[in-house]
């Protein structure tokens, strides 16, 4: 463990420890607790304005329509919305889901202590899905484990198809990718094929969902993916990360 170096009074102590290891252990405890309740936790990452809140509105609307058709398809959702300031996103989602705003006061990402506080503040509602709408940022949120079961990244067609190559960690650590605002494809120089090819160089197993939340198109496939992932997970399959 310990060895002397050039200075006789100096002692080198080998530590070799992942600095975020203890945070990861806490995240594992949260992950396990949410699993036992049957709540599937989804961490949503994107740059600002890619459409995270709009996607969640469309998701909730879709499930509401399905529920009206059949009683056994009931998916309750809760959302913890991270923003640097204001509770505007929480207000937008309040008609559809149990929601709490996490205002980070300048911090560029959500961390697990904020998530746990928000989850307690909303009184841990019974729900099939808990969405963590991260602060709009493709850098910092990628490095923080929030105890999620699934990480999904949103890339909007207005941002440019070169984002996966520019933000490798965010795409590498995600299992799903939603390409949002596809209704704008005729008007913007965005190639879905190029974005997907770059993203899959980083994460070969990435599941991809082109979506327009406003039209809406692609929402049913996206919602089905969430339901399937939840079912698989609760039946004991692991979802790989990194």
């Amino acid at each position: 463990m310990t060895q002397a170096t050039h200075h006789p009074a100096e002692r080198v102590i080998i530590v070799q420890r992942d600095v975020q290891q203890s945070a990861r252990l806490v995240a594992d405890v949260f992950r396990q607790a949410m699993r036992s309740r049957g709540t599937f936790v989804v961490n949503l990452l994107s740059s600002p304005g890619a459409g995270k809140t709009t996607l969640l509105q469309a998701t909730a609307q879709h499930w509401r329509t399905e529920e009206a058709r059949s009683d056994d398809r009931r998916y309750r959702m809760a959302v913890l919305v991270g923003d640097i300031a204001t509770d505007r996103d929480a207000q937008r989602l309040a008609p559809y889901a149990t929601v709490a705003q996490l205002t980070t006061g300048g911090a560029c990402h959500l961390d697990l202590s904020l998530v746990q506080r928000g989850w307690d503040a909303m009184q841990q509602p019974a729900c099939e899905f808990l969405f963590l709408e991260n602060v709009g940022n493709l850098v910092c949120p990628a490095a923080h484990d929030l105890g999620e079961h699934l990480r999904v990244i949103l890339l909007s067609t207005t941002e440019g198809d070169d984002k996966p190559a520019k933000y490798p960690k965010a795409f590498r650590t995600s299992q799903g990718m939603v390409i949002s605002k596809t209704d704008l494809l005729p008007h913007v120089p965005f190639s879905c094929d190029a974005a997907v090819a770059d993203a899959r160089r980083l994460q070969p197993d990435l599941a991809v969902f082109p979506v327009s939340a406003l039209q809406p198109t692609g929402i049913a496939a996206w919602c089905q993916y969430l339901v399937d992932q939840r079912t698989k997970f609760l039946n004991g399959h692991t979802i790989n990360s990194t």
Binding site: V12, R17, V19
Partner: peptide, 11 residues
């Protein structure tokens, strides 16, 4: 893929 605290040196 991580930040590793590798070693500390004491005197």
């Amino acid at each position: 893929d991580a930040v590793i605290l590798e070693q500390i040196t004491m005197v």
